[in-house]
């Protein structure tokens, strides 16, 4: 069993009378990518900020790499890397200077190779404000990992980035994971969370409402599997199939929402063959993490 790099027990955070985080507990194993999901105001940022040592909790216990983020804040600095949502760098600093500057405070050799690997080689002497959003994010990631931290916190790392940059950042995250780094990923991007995370926690109104692998979370829902079928003829028109709760016809496709994929598909294929019709296309889409997230947070009902 892998050791826990992050342990959160009964963690509680309030701002005046407002309860931002209400006695949550979870742990993150060594080398795991852990996604922290939730709508705005769910308590993700408060949780991250307390784990990073930026704020003090009001109750419970937090351990990051075996240390208390408040009491051992100074020692923790070299063990964690944080890519903040806003890059948090002065406008006039260049990537070269930023790398030297942060590396010096972490007492490590500057990792200019990271700038090269993240496609910033040509911008090493450009000032921060001259970099695109994607370049700023990549620089923030390079700085967050330059001192080889054990735990990396990523807050919306790919928000607003183009596809190519997202792929580069995802590759870097996988490389970090394969090197034994633990990553905490706070994101609104469900596809990213599903694709990258080993486990996710869904937060809602300061509480954790689900923790598990993306597969476990999506499988546990009441979500329906979507079956889209296109045939040459009209054999499927006005015909009821088992376990189908809803039927639509759109863009020449019959779309079925099924609670039992096996029974529904078997019956659909049998109907097409029995009618002498020809199957042109058949697609099956399991409920995504996003569907499950919307179901849990209650916003799915509105859509």
């Amino acid at each position: 069993m892998k050791e826990s790099m992050i342990e959160v027990k009964d963690f509680h955070k309030t701002y005046g009378d407002f309860v931002a985080v209400d006695r949550i507990s979870f742990d993150v194993k060594h080398g795991e990518i852990f996604g922290l999901l939730g709508p705005n105001g769910a308590g993700k940022t408060s949780t991250l900020e307390c784990l990073e040592g930026l704020r003090a909790p009001n109750g419970g216990s937090l351990r990051v790499a075996g240390m208390d983020p408040v009491r051992d804040g100074h020692k923790l600095r070299n063990l964690i890397g944080v890519q903040l949502q806003s890059a948090g760098l002065p406008e006039s600093i260049t990537p070269n200077e930023a790398m030297k500057f942060f590396a010096a405070y972490h007492n490590v050799t500057p990792r200019f190779d990271l700038l090269e690997r993240l496609g910033l080689d040509e911008k090493r002497k450009a000032q921060f404000f001259e970099l695109s959003t994607g370049q700023q994010r990549r620089l923030a990631l390079a700085l967050a990992i330059a001192h080889n931290p054990k735990v990396v916190f990523l807050d919306e790392p790919t928000a607003g980035l183009d596809v190519e940059t997202r792929v580069k950042l995802h590759d870097m995250m996988r490389k970090l994971q394969s090197g034994g780094t633990t990553l905490i990923l706070a994101t609104h991007d469900m596809a990213e969370a599903e694709q990258m995370s080993d486990r996710v926690a869904i937060m809602l109104q300061g509480r954790i409402v689900k923790v598990g692998t993306p597969m476990e979370i999506t499988a546990a829902g009441a979500g329906l599997t979507k079956i889209s079928v296109r045939t040459q003829g009209t054999s499927l028109s006005d015909y009821d199939f088992p376990a189908v709760s809803q039927h639509l016809f759109k863009d020449e496709y019959n779309i079925y929402f099924s609670t039992n994929i096996g029974a529904s598909i078997t019956a659909i294929i049998a109907r097409i063959e029995a009618s002498g019709d020809v199957l042109i296309d058949l697609r099956v889409e399991r409920p995504s993490l996003e569907d499950r997230f919307l179901e849990i947070t209650g916003t799915g009902a509105a859509q």
Binding site: R77, V82, L84, G88, L89, P90, Y105
Partner: peptide, 16 residues
């Protein structure tokens, strides 16, 4: 400006 734009937060995290 540095405080308002989160630059001090970034400095704190990096042990400055």
């Amino acid at each position: 400006n540095a405080r308002e734009h989160g630059i001090f937060r970034s400095y704190k995290i990096n042990g400055i």
